[in-house]
């Protein structure tokens, strides 16, 4: 969290007058923001429902801002407005070391740990190590899976590195691995599930280990306004209970998401 409060790309600032300054009067309900473009949205919504049930409040789900540039221009400014005006909790954020959470926001404990996977079409590949270095590997842009792949690659002699292309569109990745442009694609498992309607095999894909690149996963959590410290502690306790009683694992199974409940 060393970048807590760090500046972000230019254009993040907007007038405070765009934010409501009143406290929402919402009785026995809790409002969750959900990024419906995220591959994890279906799981996150179920987690939100379970958290609300545990807290004996009624959940309301509204859209989180989405569709921003790959450099995130304007994202945090719009998120700040939405969280001030519309919702208490943003579900489905990625907890990563050194991530630039703004100082007006605070993350909850993680509720799930969901992996990145390597998908290929060639039946001869048993792991990433089998893919010839002349092949290109597609990686999900800006992801921890890409990070680990680049880091490993840079540690190898130049002639032994795979060529890599970044993708922001999982469907394009799928198209390119199927037409042979890419030897394999590294992406978040829920993204792969979404673009293959939950059945990668039917789409002609196999999931193989990323060896020798270390396995990657995302710790998924929620984000609250920093001023909502009481609500954060309540949600942290609820998430702990949902992990302990098997609810989170059950929700992962229901949504066909790989991964496991987050460790304490």
């Amino acid at each position: 969290m060393s970048f807590l409060g760090a500046a972000t790309a230019f254009g993040q600032e907007l007038p405070d007058t765009l934010e409501n300054k009143t406290t929402r009067l919402q009785g026995d309900q809790i409002t969750f923001c959900l990024d419906r473009q995220s591959a994890g949205a279906v799981f996150d919504q179920k987690v939100g429902q379970a958290i609300a049930d545990a807290l004996l409040v009624k959940p309301v789900f509204v859209d989180a801002p989405s569709g921003f540039p790959i450099d995130a221009g304007g994202y945090l400014a719009e998120l700040k407005i939405v969280m001030a005006n519309s919702c208490d909790v943003l579900l489905g954020i990625s907890l990563q070391p050194n991530f630039p959470y703004p100082d007006w926001a605070t993350p909850t404990r993680a509720y799930a740990d969901i992996p990145f996977v390597l998908a290929v079409t060639n039946p001869n590949y048993k792991s990433l190590a089998d893919i010839p270095r002349t092949q290109r590997i597609g990686t999900a842009l800006g992801s921890i899976g890409e990070y680990n792949f680049i880091t490993y690659s840079l540690q190898q002699p130049e002639g032994q590195r795979w060529r890599r292309l970044p993708y922001a569109d999982p469907n394009l990745m799928l198209k390119r691995v199927k037409d042979g442009t890419l030897g394999g694609i590294i992406l978040w498992q829920p993204s792969l599930s979404k673009i293959t309607n939950g059945d990668p095999a039917a789409a002609g894909l196999r999931i193989i280990p990323t060896d020798p690149v270390p396995a990657s996963s995302v710790q998924v959590a929620a984000l609250l306004s920093s001023r909502d410290s009481f609500l954060r502690s309540q949600i942290d306790q609820a998430v702990g209970s949902l992990i302990d009683d098997g609810t989170i694992q059950s929700l992962l199974d229901q949504t066909k998401f790989a991964g496991k409940p987050a460790a304490d």
């Binding site: 970048f3 972000t8 790309a9 994890g40 999900a140």
Partner: peptide
């Protein structure tokens, strides 16, 4: 700092790391 930029996983919505001005 070039780093992981995903804010919501699986989605190309990032948050770029620039230090204070």
């Amino acid at each position: 700092t070039p780093t992981v930029t995903e804010f919501t996983p699986g989605n190309a919505v990032g948050a770029t790391t620039f230090g204070p001005r």
